[in-house]
Nucleic acid binder design. Structure first.
Length: 164
DNA sequence: GCCAACGTTGGC
DNA sequence: GCCAACGTTGGC
């Protein structure tokens, strides 16, 4: 309805035990379905704001060295996350019905692995002080990244040349 | 393993 | 609709 796009860049958390940047790169087409989002705010980002081609910072969380581990892109629109209907899945949601799926996913295509840009280094950059991931108590698994933040991070990763 | 912070649930 | 209790997240 509006032509405004609030964000073109995102940070997406993944536990490397579940899906690391290496796992994503090794997947067919380097593309993985982003299963397991069970938070309404994150779901709404996928549903309402994220578009094919948007840039993604691939973040490793809940691991010995949390931080940005790679660059990816949004590779599809949303569709229902099948794991919500699988009783054996840790992501099972018995309250969600196939006629009205509650949870969505989209495909994420890994573009490249980077050096690990860890939290201490992120915090050391005043330009990145506004990063949602650095805010106290932030738990959102998908957060928007401002254009200046994206540019700064790609710079730190030495990837500014070949990726917008 | 700890614990602060947050989201969700459910009784009222 | 309030809010306490509970479960989860995630860095340390």
């Amino acid at each position: 309805m509006t032509t405004n796009r609030p964000a073109r860049h995102w940070l997406m958390k993944s536990e490397p035990d579940e899906c690391s940047i290496d796992d994503a790169l090794a997947a067919p087409g380097a593309t993985v379905p982003w299963t397991g989002v069970r938070n309404y705010q994150a779901r709404n980002f996928m549903r309402d704001a994220m578009q094919v081609g948007d840039g993604v910072l691939f973040y490793h969380s809940s691991c010995p060295e949390p931080g940005i581990a790679g660059i990816a892109r949004i590779a599809s629109g949303t569709r229902p996350d099948p794991t919500q209907f699988e009783a054996a899945s840790p992501y099972f949601d018995g309250a969600s019905k196939p006629e009205t799926p509650r949870w969505l996913l989209l495909d994420v295509q890994a573009l490249r692995k980077t050096r690990l840009l860890g939290l201490p280094e992120l915090r050391a950059n005043p330009e990145l002080a506004g990063l949602r991931i650095l805010q106290r108590g932030n738990r959102l698994s998908i957060t928007p990244v401002e254009p200046a933040e994206w540019a700064r991070i790609l710079n730190l990763l030495g990837a500014a040349g070949d990726l917008r």
